[in-house]
Nucleic acid binder design. Structure first.
Lengths: 253, 253
DNA sequence: TTTGCGCTTTCCGTTACGTCAACTCCTACG
DNA sequence: CGTAGGAGTTGACGTAACGGAAAGCGCAAA
């Protein structure tokens, strides 16, 4: 029982060109070649092709697949190494995406060349931003908590999500308005905003004074948060942090 | 003031070969070419090169960079589109890494061909696995909570992290031992294990009965958790879920 | 004069094939 | 028996962004 190259192509889903390529690089030579030069494959070749396609789908290079198949290298070892490469590359793209995101924000800041404190309206502010917020190293450390947030988030609709994002943005804009007219962070109106913020956080976590201050500092230190605040208005992250610290001192300790 | 190709290479950090390439594809022609064929660059070219390198670092293709620079296309628009591509590719790699991870687990299950319930010892069980636990879509939804876990995680050393992973694994192995000898999930010894698990979770979150059951179900439904449990012993995820449900009924409601 | 540096052009190699182009072989049809 | 068509073949070029090697030219010091 032998099959032609077109048969194999149909059965496996790859093109005949690909099979010829695999022959050319020595990855999958046909069982035998007819007098007219036609390639013929048998079951052994089909099995080998199956292995090849499996590893190919996992993203391994053809060279590496050949090594594993021919030199009897440990497949698990190869996959593990490959897995590591995938993670590295994923993290690289993750970082890159955040850098791009930040660059976009900076370009937009440049564009409107006013030197007074400027408050950006939230129309398109979070487009292409929401998915780039997190770092991959830390997100692997607390699966349980992450699971919980995932489970909670899964109960939300897209509209819910969008609405909450708008709420957050609106809160940031109100703070920016206070800051623009130099209202001190201890002003009751500002503290009322912080209180709303605190209540929002309490939906899934109740920080004490130190923790709440730490969270405020995060808004300044963390590139992603800072970028979000800076897009609303320059210096807003620090203003928010100071307001939160004042709140923590007055109401949480 | 003009500079030779080597001057520009030194100043910019790229190779002269690269500059020649950029000339060849029309991305950065030199200001003028001397009688001996030598390329000479002036300040305008340096500025253009600066732009090119900026966008190149962000991962844009040379073609696209040329389009932006020559046709005055909107840089922000180009970056936004690029950003989207980056996220898509990142997610693809993320998914791929998880698939590879699962495949490794399955290959290892195949390798030891015993048909009785087998408990895998945790020596190398989590190598190359810990960074592939999470899905990117959901992780973008709850920045605050994620921030908190990040802040907590950042206070941990690598040893802390490893120790906690070992603890988790040890807990899973103990559950597997109960399961292997068919101890019912309502057995006090099993429930004691679940209680330890519950206490661990309470370090950052206090689930009620329904939430705790839901978490148990997650261990079964979620590919990543399930894979981790299945690597210890087949069916362990379900056993754990049932034990948690029993615990929730008995102690949390 | 020779050596050597700096520069040039040209070409091959990298991945995993897609896409022609030109050619051969075999079968069916008129 | 000629020919159209289908299935197969090899060969070559293209992809992105250069790296590296080979071979040659102009100029200056030793």
């Amino acid at each position: 029982m032998a099959w032609s190259i077109a048969d194999v192509a149909r059965m496996s889903g790859v093109t005949s060109r690909t099979l010829r390529h695999y022959d050319e690089i020595g990855l999958l030579p046909p069982a035998w070649i007819g007098g007219n030069g036609h390639r013929h494959y048998e079951e052994a070749e089909l099995l080998r092709l199956q292995q090849i396609l499996l590893m190919r789908e996992l993203g391994l290079g053809l060279r590496e697949i050949g090594d594993v198949l021919d030199n009897q290298l440990d497949q698990v070892e190869a996959l593990r190494a490959h897995h590591q490469r995938l993670l590295t590359e994923r993290d690289r793209l993750d970082t890159l995406a955040r850098t791009v995101s930040r660059t976009i924000a900076e370009l937009q800041k440049e564009q409107d060349g006013s030197d007074m404190t400027k408050i950006n309206r939230p129309e398109k502010l979070f487009e292409g931003f929401d998915a780039s917020r997190h770092e991959s190293k830390a997100r692997d450390k607390w699966p349980q908590e992450w699971e919980q947030s995932k489970r909670y988030a899964d109960t939300l609709t897209a509209e819910d999500h969008e609405r909450m994002q708008r709420e957050t943005t609106a809160q940031m804009v109100r703070m920016a308005e206070f800051m623009a007219v130099d209202i001190p962070v201890t002003d009751p109106a500002v503290q009322a905003e912080v209180d709303a913020h605190y209540q929002g956080i309490c939906r899934f976590w109740t920080p004490n004074a130190a923790a709440f201050k730490g969270l405020g500092q995060t808004y300044v230190d963390d590139q992603q948060w800072r970028s979000a605040y800076d897009r609303i208005a320059e210096g807003l992250a620090e203003y928010q942090r100071d307001a939160m610290a004042a709140y923590a001192d007055a109401r949480l300790s």
